Amino acid sequence: MQVMGSAWLMSAGIGGSWTEPRSALRNDVALYPTLLPWLPVGIPAVIADVRRRTGLERGPQTRMAQLRPLWEHLTNIAPAYRLAELGPDDGLPSEAEREHRMRIELEDIIFAVSRWLPAGTVWPEGARDRAAVLHEACEEFSQTCGQPAVRGSALSSPLWAVHDDEVDDVARAWATLQPRGQQLI
């Protein structure tokens, strides 16, 4: 602001203490206090950018690509739970909204197909084991064509399905259960 004011005064031909050349130290002393309030705003943005560029922070598009094999399989066996096609023309302008919708569909389908597990089935702790049990539930669900032959109990509720990190782990494990290009069912 001071520099702009000095420039206006110089262009008008006005001389004085505001238009005299200053030392670098005097410039620094005038500049740094004006930058201090912006540090809390700028540093997190820089850190987020560095994390994104180094791959430490995955964006919605990367997370959606990771979830897609599991999501496609589950929405193919239970299309009634699919809310909408996930594309830019669906009224969901951001990747984050499309990812959120994908996670809602996954959660709903996982809870639905878990009712087709044998009574007393308890979801295991490991992601790979959970993916295998989910595969078993999907097979039962698809064999009965989703008819209400519900055999499960409250013990088989997949409480892990409401946690994004655990769903991500199961999606990664799901991708390793099958060779690429083959269906599990």
Rank of each mutant, 00 (worst) to 15 (best):
Q2W: 06
V3R: 14
A7T: 10
L9K: 13
L9H: 11
G13R: 09
G15D: 08
G15H: 06
S17Y: 00
P21V: 02
R22Y: 08
R22T: 08
A24M: 07
D28K: 02
V29D: 01
V29I: 11
Y32A: 09
P33F: 00
P33T: 01
T34R: 15
L36Q: 12
L36H: 07
W38E: 12
I43N: 08
I43F: 05
P44A: 04
I47D: 12
D49N: 15
E57Y: 13
E57P: 08
E57A: 15
R58Q: 15
P60Y: 04
P60V: 02
P60I: 01
Q61E: 15
M64D: 06
Q66D: 11
W71I: 01
W71S: 03
W71T: 02
E72Q: 14
H73T: 05
A78E: 02
P79M: 04
Y81K: 04
A84K: 08
E85Y: 01
L86S: 02
L86V: 01
G87T: 03
D89M: 02
D89N: 07
D89A: 04
D90H: 04
P93T: 02
S94K: 10
E95Y: 10
R101Q: 09
R103L: 01
L106T: 00
E107D: 12
D108H: 11
I110M: 09
I110D: 01
S114P: 10
R115A: 14
W116Q: 06
L117D: 05
L117P: 10
P118H: 02
T121M: 04
V122M: 14
W123F: 09
W123R: 11
W123Q: 13
W123Y: 08
A127R: 03
R128I: 07
R130F: 04
R130I: 02
A131F: 00
A132T: 11
A132F: 00
A132V: 09
V133C: 09
V133H: 01
L134F: 04
E136L: 10
C138I: 02
E140Q: 06
Q143N: 06
V150G: 06
R151S: 11
R151M: 07
A154N: 11
A154P: 00
S157R: 14
S157G: 12
P158H: 04
A161Y: 01
H163R: 13
H163N: 12
D164T: 03
D165C: 07
E166A: 11
V167K: 03
D168Y: 09
A175T: 13
L177N: 05
L177G: 02
Q182H: 10
I185M: 01
